[in-house]
Amino acid sequence: MTRTKTSKAWMHEHVNDSYVQRAKSEGYRSRAAYKLMEIDDKDHLLRPGMVVVDLGAAPGSWTQIALQRVGRAGRVFALDLLPVEPLSGMEFIQGDFQEDSVLAELESRLAGEPVDLVLSDMAPNMSGIDTVDQARSIHLGELALDFAARHLKPGGNFLIKVFQGAGFMEFRSEIQRHFASLQVRKPKASRDRSAEVYLLGLRRKPD
């Protein structure tokens, strides 16, 4: 009964959410578009001609923003376990980022081209068990950071969604090892009660 009430409350909030309504009227695939827009407006991560990798891209709203802002001279690679409806200019790979074969395909598509920006809005399939979900979330974050550390060009940037909880501070420290600066962002489109924050690693250190 409580679960049904909670589901109804979430649906009511979602339908009446101003960002959800804006996304529908402005043609974005989810409210998450406004999170990336706000961060990018502040930190100027996306510029024309860039090579961008978007991990956990479905339904594609971050990819939409990246494509708009890098323009035709840029390249945007999007990866997700779920399908993503085609977007003009998007280079999409469907698969599990945790599998070596999927990572190898992404690396093959890059063909040695250095990456300017790695975005990760990945989240695990939630089990409802907080400790398990947090551990899975941090593990995905570590995989994304490992990819960024190996493929970002020196000076490149890394933006990732993380949930505050066990392992969060250690993960923050790990990002700081690889980047000259670390910023924490909580955009307005992120619901206040959500434990999610965005960690921004700026200017990857040379090897």
Rank of each mutant, 00 (worst) to 15 (best):
R191W: 01
R193A: 06
I175H: 04
R193Y: 00
Q176P: 00
R191F: 02
Y198M: 08
S181C: 12
E196N: 00
S181G: 07
R191P: 01
M169K: 12
A195I: 06
A195F: 02
A180D: 07
R177K: 15
F179R: 07
Q176S: 05
D192E: 13
P187E: 13
P187Y: 11
A189F: 09
V184Y: 05
S190Y: 01
P187D: 13
R177F: 04
A189Q: 13
Y198K: 13
F171V: 06
P187F: 11
V184P: 01
R177D: 12
S190I: 06
V197S: 11
H178K: 15
P187A: 15
M169C: 01
F171S: 07
Q176G: 05
A189S: 12
V184R: 13
L182D: 03
V184M: 13
R172I: 02
Y198P: 05
E196I: 01
S181Y: 13
H178L: 11
Y198N: 07
K186P: 02
I175A: 07
S181I: 12
R185A: 05
R185N: 09
F179P: 01
F171W: 09
A189G: 08
Q176I: 02
E174W: 11
A195D: 11
S194P: 04
M169D: 10
A195V: 10
R193F: 00
P187V: 12
Q183A: 08
S181W: 11
K188V: 00
R172Y: 06
A195M: 12
I175G: 01
D192V: 10
K186V: 13
R191H: 06
F171K: 10
M169I: 02
R185D: 00
S190R: 06
R191T: 07
E174K: 15
E196K: 06
K188R: 08
E170N: 15
E196P: 00
M169E: 12
K188M: 01
L182H: 04
S190G: 07
L199F: 08
F179W: 03
R172A: 06
R177A: 12
S194E: 12
S173A: 15
P187G: 14
S194H: 11
S173M: 15
Q176R: 13
S181K: 15
L182Y: 05
E174Y: 06
S173G: 14
R185Q: 12
M169F: 03
Q176H: 04
Q183H: 08
